[in-house]
Design a protein around this nucleic acid. Structure first.
Lengths: 236, 236
DNA sequence: TGCGGCTACGACTTCGGTTGTATTGGCCGA
DNA sequence: TCGGCCAATACAACCGAAGTCGTAGCCGCA
């Protein structure tokens, strides 16, 4: 676990933003414990007195209507009433000028780029330590767009693309090959498969070789894992 | 959001257990903020002085070796070095008589039943409020097995009994066997495994034979499927 | 008629799994 | 404290299963 787990993205000139001007913040998270922990950390580290919290997107919106806009928002990515980037988009419509930091346990590349594309000021992991967290927030409130170290913007969607490519490869399997793969994914041996399909074991092996070459696997266990990764055959 | 989100499962007679006897607990979670929040809550609500924390399964194990066993454990389901039920199984080997509470944001039915089958004292959601959390823990420490309201063990008929039995079998795996099984479930060949663990391929094979005899599998692909069926190792 | 994809088979090589055995370290009772 | 014992780990030799390669029949189509 590194101490400063954040990388600088780009330092935009944002005259309106400054960590000093952040006096009141709003935390939107449905985990009460996490809310408390965040609030406490912020109070101590930034000397903030006004830390507001909300348990849902709807509650946050109403609170902003009633009590006015905060100087910054920390928004959980997985709220009961707004999973994903939806909550971010909604909130930004209401308070376009307030920096919104996304927070989540999820470090998937696709998720981060979606959030950043939707206008988040930054994205921090729930597994960050106190110091790194505080540092990241400070930088965000000074106008920097901050993403986790692990985030590779250029590879965004790459794993998704790989998944799609994999699915395409599975689509090239012939009917017989598909039958055989299904049986493989049930843990059957070649001999059993040959019996069920009434063909020679040698033939089964040939098909398996073809299958594995198509989906780029070397061992049959890998074939099983790949098939499961695209949910080729759903549970028995 | 209900206030008391827990349901009673069954009140087992457990003379050794009593909430009063819980004086020292260990929290295993890789989210520092969550750790703090939990620790603080417990200190306040139970008047506990000794709340130990660990950031990973390995750290927890070492701490237990060095400082002895705590009276109770709260274990995150998604640790960097042990996703899924694996961590629970491993810890229970080390401290079989200490009640272990699983905690996770994930409320999937299958996940919960996997954890309970693997011998957890209870399962609580990270989105629980303080009161409900404290109440649930107290009941667990008195011997009750507590699961979230949303959990429906109903389709936990025979199929779940089989699952529980399976989980118990996985729990008998030795550390080395567990390592090897994890690598098998990543699609690795025996030779690769032997290299990674710096042992002879022959040894790997011996362990595999032992593993398969314990979980009642004949082929390694079946071992992978069985491990996945109890969510022993969660996806990377 | 010839070409390419699907299916089928056998011979050969490599890998996976079984069995038998040795070594170590912890635990328990004499 | 010392054997004795068991569990865990380690290795090699053997054999059956898995996977590779070369080949062939059978379509449908140009």
């Amino acid at each position: 676990m590194a101490s400063a787990e954040m990388q600088s993205q780009d330092r935009v000139a944002s005259p309106r933003l400054s960590a000093d001007r952040v006096r009141e913040i709003l935390i939107v998270d449905d985990h009460p414990l996490m809310c408390d922990a965040l609030a406490l950390t912020l109070k101590i580290s930034f000397g903030l007195r006004n830390v507001r919290t909300a348990r849902s997107l709807a509650a946050a919106q109403e609170q902003i209507r009633n009590q006015g806009a905060p100087d910054a928002v920390i928004l959980d990515l997985n709220l009961p009433d707004a999973r994903g980037a939806e909550g971010l988009v909604t909130l930004r419509r209401q308070i376009p000028d307030v920096p919104i930091t996304m927070i989540s346990a999820d470090l998937e590349n696709a998720m981060i780029s979606a959030a950043m594309a939707a206008g988040a000021q930054g994205y921090i992991s729930k597994s960050l330590g106190r110091e790194a967290l505080v540092d990241s927030l400070r930088r965000m409130w000074e106008g920097e767009r901050v993403t986790p170290d692990s985030y590779q913007p250029e590879h965004a969607g790459e794993e998704d693309a790989a998944r799609a490519e994999l699915a395409r490869r599975f689509a090239t399997l012939t009917p017989q090959q598909m039958k055989i793969l299904r049986l493989i994914c049930q843990g059957k041996a070649n001999k059993e498969i040959s019996y069920e399909l009434s063909i020679a074991e040698a033939t089964v092996k040939t098909h398996i070789t073809a299958i594995m070459s198509k989906i780029n696997a070397r061992r049959r266990t890998q074939a099983v894992l790949l098939a499961n990764s695209v949910r080729l055959f759903e549970p028995a």
